[in-house]
Amino acid sequence: MEPIIKIQGVHKYFGTLEALKGVNLEVQKGEVVVIIGPSGSGKSTMLRCINRLEEFDEGSIIVDGIPLDTAENINAVRTEVGMVFQQFNLFPHLSVLENVLLAQQIVRKRDRAEAEKVGMALLNKVGIPEKAKYFPGQLSGGQQQRVAIARALAMNPKIMLFDEPTSALDPEMIQEVLDVMVALAREGMTMVVVSHEMGFARACAHRAILMDAGQIIEEASPDVLFSHPTHERTKAFLSKVLH
């Protein structure tokens, strides 16, 4: 089957620093892939290349059959790919509900009633329908991140990208966000997750990938990668993270 995400030979430079050194990755529809690696290893950069928030200098990325080349194609891909950020990035001047409605209305061209139906259903799904009229600033970090997930899902994406979704959260709020992600994975959503949440990876991921210095070092099922890594760099990284 044709992979839904196909990354081929992608290089990315920040000035003279080569952040991605020829990355190849294929993700199948319905697959959950977790990417781990030390900071600065290029994992977030690679994730951000998938919806072209980050431009890449060489190589190609094809998402759901659409190559990321023209502005038109990039926008088409972005409507099919939801993204959740470390810093939530909710729109602070809009209520929770408006956060979830805006893109549905102006990008998907849904009318208000339909968008509201979708939006409220998703706020129910992430467990905070009662906060619909609040502003993001009145919510806890965990609640904000759940709204951010609902906002992305409102576009009915085929793929969800998570960029360290729990790294900015207080420890007691991590689980509520992970629960939403687990539910999403169980429903068969294609997910690419940059995260060091080993519990989530073991429970849901089909594949775990270790990146270091702009390259994919090792990939395997989470259990194999975490318990029996073959590569020295994987072992070194895991020994630091798992303590």
Binding site: N51, L53, N75, R78, T79, V81, G82, M83, F85, Q87, N89, L90, F91, L102, A103, I106, V107, R108, A148, R151, A152, M155
Partner: peptide
């Protein structure tokens, strides 16, 4: 913050829409 523009663009908004609404 740059994240606001990124969030808007990641939802498929054009640059002009992101400017106008966000």
């Amino acid at each position: 913050s740059k994240g606001q523009m990124e969030a808007a663009r990641s939802l498929g908004m054009t640059y002009v829409q992101a400017m106008r609404y966000i």
